[in-house]
Design a binder for these strands. Structure first.
Length: 354
DNA sequence: AAGATCAACAACCGCAAAGTG
DNA sequence: CCACTTTGCGGTTGTTGATCT
């Protein structure tokens, strides 16, 4: 025979709903004097018109002195996501790894924030796998962007030709003077053939090497063949990637291997479907559908979270819905790009890379 | 300014396992 | 072993304040 969930609730006069400060003080005073436990008889002894279960919940989830309240840190966010990928909705087990946080608080935080955040970036919070429809949406978004870029590029090429006195139908490329090189820099960021890049993701050419869909441990290794990953990828230290249920910081850049390590509390991390673009050197490019977990930047331009010194990045994140670019400070890299561009024709479309 | 909607959080409910006499 | 109580857990709902229209 099962007891009712709250044995005293049949009695009239038992209070429900939010606790008042006076009730909290009564409960605290009683527990200070007698300790917790024996919840059934506690309310009467403590002078509370509550059921014992309600008192226990209030104590364990709110009044206990060893509870930390307030904003979750990015480190805690990461831990929760990692553990949820591993353990599922076992909130008490997750809470055991987060000192001073209650399972109820973690559960609420997951349901109201983290779950939405993952959904927003195209990760199914139940499976921790990318959602196909989200990938398609991203692809459409990026296709629009690519189309706009090509149109702008074509327009600028037409304008530059007009300025140089060439007819629009001329098949001859304009002379490569400094002006054209400048245009090349502005209108033809290298290797932005994102459609092909994303196609590689969608068609699964670039797969993580987790045996199943669960995170096996806080440290995993992702492997690629050289063919899949023709350029060494330099992970930005303390960047994190979310993909195929893998979370962690990408810190290794050896050919064909990306190692996912544990988190770093003081650094921002990025969640998204990230990949390098082939054909450029290790410190070249990445496309990242990103979320700034620190929620401190409304744009990725100039963001210190990217290794801006050597990277060109494009992405759209939680706090903004437009592409932003972050040109680094490493002029050598961009000078090299300009040198490359000086050696190719300024055709209005197409990339020299793909 | 007022009502509607949303987000965040606290609390409740039901179930099950563990404990006790 | 049984009947009952206590405790723990996870899903869900209710409340409140902020934001939007």
């Amino acid at each position: 025979m099962r007891q009712p969930p709250c044995p005293q609730k049949e009695k009239v006069g038992l209070k429900k709903g939010p606790w008042t400060p006076e009730e909290d003080e009564k409960l605290l005073a009683y527990i200070r004097q007698h300790g917790d436990g024996s919840w059934r008889g506690l309310p009467v002894k403590a002078g509370l018109e509550r059921c014992g279960k309600s008192c226990r919940l209030r104590w364990t989830n709110y009044l206990r002195p060893d509870i930390k309240r307030g904003k979750f840190s990015s480190q805690e966010d990461q831990t929760i996501i990692q553990l949820h990928a591993l353990l599922g909705n076992r909130w008490s087990a997750i809470a055991a790894h987060l000192p001073k946080r209650t399972d109820n608080e973690i559960k609420n935080y997951w349901n109201t924030r983290l779950k939405k955040r993952l959904t927003k970036i195209g990760i199914d919070p139940a499976t921790h796998k990318p959602k196909t429809d989200a990938l398609t949406a991203n692809l459409n978004h990026m296709a629009q962007w690519e189309r706009a870029r090509l149109e702008a590029e074509a327009r600028l090429v037409r304008e530059s030709r007009q300025q140089l006195g060439l007819s629009s139908s001329s098949s001859l490329p304009p002379p490569l003077n400094n002006k054209n090189v400048a245009f090349a820099h502005l209108t033809k960021p290298p290797c932005l053939d994102v459609l092909k890049a994303w196609q590689r993701v969608v068609t699964g050419l670039f797969t993580f090497n987790t045996a199943d869909n669960n995170l096996q441990s806080p440290t995993s290794t992702l492997n690629f063949t050289e063919e899949m990953l023709p350029v060494p990828y330099v992970g930005f230290n303390n960047d994190a990637f979310v993909g195929n249920s893998v979370y962690g910081n990408c810190v290794v850049s050896t050919m064909g291997s990306i190692e996912i390590l544990g988190s770093s509390p003081e650094n921002a991390w990025w969640a998204g479907n990230a990949m390098e673009l082939e054909g450029y050197p290790a410190d070249a490019l990445m496309v990242c559908n990103a979320v700034d977990q620190h929620q401190q930047s409304s744009s990725m331009e100039g963001s210190e979270n990217f290794d801006a010194g050597t990277s060109y990045a494009t992405g759209f994140g939680e706090n903004f819905d437009a592409y932003a670019t972050g040109f680094g400070e490493n002029n050598d890299y961009w000078n090299n790009i300009l040198d490359d561009l000086a050696n190719v024709s300024l055709s209005p479309s197409g990339s020299s890379v793909f």
